[in-house]
């Protein structure tokens, strides 16, 4: 039986169809889960897609976190179920305290839609493979609030526990700074260039970039496949 993803849809989600399409393209089963559902049955993993849940008129994700479905998402995650939050989904996961830290407005106070380079870090995350560490992926970002922040102790813990999954790096190489020794700074200003983190157990993964946009190669790149495929490979040893 195909690996089955649940794609959680909030009012205002706008990437759920793209995520569903990308997962189907990769040969997985993907079903929508409406935000008012209270039960989650038969899913191997969940994805919270991007968008503007409830319009994001309050802090991003702050309303969605109280959606009926979220209790079930939290239980699923606490039981070790793999959960990925993309963009607005990442924001919701931080609001729901499934992931530490918060996403502030981009440092330039402008919405940013552009491809970025991401280095896969050595981490405990279920959604990446150990052998991918050091690999650089080209995946677009698309957000107004992607400036990751957390307190110093949390950052220390994220580093120590290998919870930092993806970091923004300079466009041309694996390098985190320029020749003058200046550190590379992510376009959104994220702390420590953090683009994606996971919880200590590695099953809950939040990232600002949109891997579903680089799966079928429409824009000439397929780097998004790795993240979805890695999870399935770890979970069922295939794909």
């Amino acid at each position: 039986m195909a690996f089955r993803f649940g794609v959680v849809v909030f009012p205002g989600s706008n990437c759920e169809q793209d995520v569903q399409y990308a997962l189907s393209y990769l040969g997985y089963e993907a079903r929508y889960v409406w935000h008012q559902e209270r039960q989650l049955h038969g899913f191997d993993a969940l994805v919270l897609p991007g968008g503007f849940s409830y319009g994001d008129y309050l802090r991003c994700g702050a309303v969605a976190r109280f959606s009926p479905v979220m209790d079930a998402v939290v239980s699923f995650a606490e039981a070790g179920g793999p959960v990925m939050g993309i963009c607005n989904g990442f924001q919701i996961l931080t609001e729901a305290h499934l992931l530490p830290g918060a996403l502030l407005r981009n440092i330039g106070l402008k919405f940013l839609c552009q491809p970025v380079s991401l280095r896969v870090e050595q981490s405990v995350c279920l959604w990446t493979l150990p052998e991918d560490a050091g690999r650089v992926l080209r995946i677009p970002i698309n957000h107004n609030e992607g400036n990751y922040i957390c307190d110093a102790d949390t950052l220390k813990a994220l580093r120590a526990n290998k919870q930092i999954v993806l970091r923004y790096v300079g466009d041309n190489d694996n390098d985190t700074g320029d020749d003058s020794g200046q550190l590379y700074q992510a376009p959104n200003g994220a702390l420590d260039n953090i683009a994606g983190i996971c919880n200590a157990a590695g099953n809950v993964f939040g990232l600002m970039p949109h891997p579903e946009r680089v799966v079928d190669g429409i824009s000439g790149c397929t780097d998004g496949r790795a993240l979805f495929n890695s999870l399935v490979r770890r979970m069922v040893g295939v794909s």
Binding site: N14, F111, R213, I218, S219
Partner: peptide, 16 residues
């Protein structure tokens, strides 16, 4: 300008 616009959602944008 266009960095401020989501120009890829719906996954059909062929040319940036």
């Amino acid at each position: 300008i266009w960095r401020q616009y989501d120009h890829q959602v719906q996954n059909n944008t062929v040319l940036l």
